[in-house]
Each structure stands twice: as structure tokens, then as C-alpha cells.
Amino acid sequence: MIGAMITGALKRWVQAVQEFTFLLSDSVRYAFTAPRYLVDTLIQMDVIGFGSLPIVILIGFFTGGVLALQSYRTLSTFGEVGLMGKVVALSLVLELGPVLTALMVAGRNSSGIASEIGSMVVSEQVDAMRALGTDPLRKLVIPRLAATVATLPLLTILADFAGMLGGYFVSFYTVHLTTEEYWTSAYQSLTYQDVTQGLIKPFFFAVIISMVGCFQGLHTTGGTEGVGRATTRAMVVASVLIVVVDFFITKLLVGIGFF
């Protein structure tokens, strides 16, 4: 009884991984062939990119501020408060910026994509789309994938900058570092490899956010209750995958001597 349940769960999991892989490979393959839905892609860039801008900047700003406040305690012990800019900049650009931005965008958009596509599935709009001669992969999935891949790195850059700005305000008003001390330390600490690493990660995270949302949406069953389940699952799966994939990308980049 328990053995059958475990076998069933494993089969479903393997099947989901297989279907996700097919969806991802087909999306990448079709992305470079016509027909393309440019208008849909631009609309999604507005929804996913511009729409996420306020929360991403807000989260980035306050994360930078908290980072400065917390690191002040440690740095002051060693008399190295002048390194505040370096600590904030490196933490943000390498890890917190990409990961927090991705988690915010996942929370907002992975679930949004799943609920939108899921609602279309349960109300037979996706079937109607296919019946009217449109491939949902091209019309629904690829524009969301392209829009997320295009906007997440830009959002990450803005979040990084907002975070550094938050760190600066704390350093200036609380720790009383000068503007020059903070920004010089921040600027000089960042190497080309750091910035590149911070910008490689968002591409992987963008694929996770969009594809998990689309996958969960397209596999929605069970009416409006199913849409709710797909929405929650999309956010949870995307968030967990972001953190896990972040570890492996970092490990890989360290392994190939990227630092």
C-alpha cells in the first residue's frame, strides 16, 4: 500500500520533470522560428518588468539598508567601518540582488502567469486557441519566457543600485561615513567577474520563473480550485528552484575558477 503510493508519487514526479523538460526545450527551439508574437512579448515585458519595478526597488533599497546596519556591528569591532561600501556592494551584486529580485519576481509573476494560463485552461480558452490555429506555446509561453529573460537582468541591476543607495543612506546618516568613502569602497571592490556573475544568475532565474509559471498553468486541472493550487505551486516551486539553482551556479562558477 505505502510502496504503491511511493511508486505512484515517484512516477508522477518523473513525468512532471519529463514534461517540463519537453516544454523548456520546445520553447527554446520555437523561440527562434516564426510566427513570433512581438506585441504579446512587449505586453509581458511591461507586466513582468515594469510592473515589478516598484517592489524590486523597494526591497533592494531596504535590503541594502539592513545590510549596512548589520555589517556596521561587525565592522566596527575591527575598526573597519570604511569597508561598509565594499560589504554592501559585494553582498548585493553577487548574491542578494539576483536572488532577492528573482524571489520577488517569482512571487509576483510566476504565480501570476500560472493563474492567468490556468484560468485559460479551465475555461477552455487554450483549447479554443488551438482550435483557431494558434500554438499556445508560441502565443503564451514564449512571450513570457522572452519577456522575463529580457527584464530580470535589468531589474537585478536596478535592485543592486537601489540596495547600494539604501546602504549609502544608512552609512551616511547613521554611521557618518562620507559619500566618497562609501562609494569609492563600493566601486573599487567590484571586479568584472563579480558583475558578470551577478548578471549570469538572472538569466537562469528568469527561465525558472517563466517556465515554472507556464508549466503549472498549462497543467491546471480541477476548475477554479485547481487554478489556486497551480498558483501556489508555481510560486513555491519557482522560489525553491531559484535558491537551489543559485547554489549550483555559484558552485560551478567557483569550480571553473571564475572568481
Binding site: 484560468s119 475555461s123 477552455e124 480558452q125 479554443a128
Partner: peptide
């Protein structure tokens, strides 16, 4: 379709 399936 049963409920029309118009694009909302």
C-alpha cells in the same frame, strides 16, 4: 465550446 471560451 460549452461556455463559449471567449478570450477574456
Amino acid at each position: 465550446f460549452q461556455e463559449g471560451a471567449l478570450f477574456d
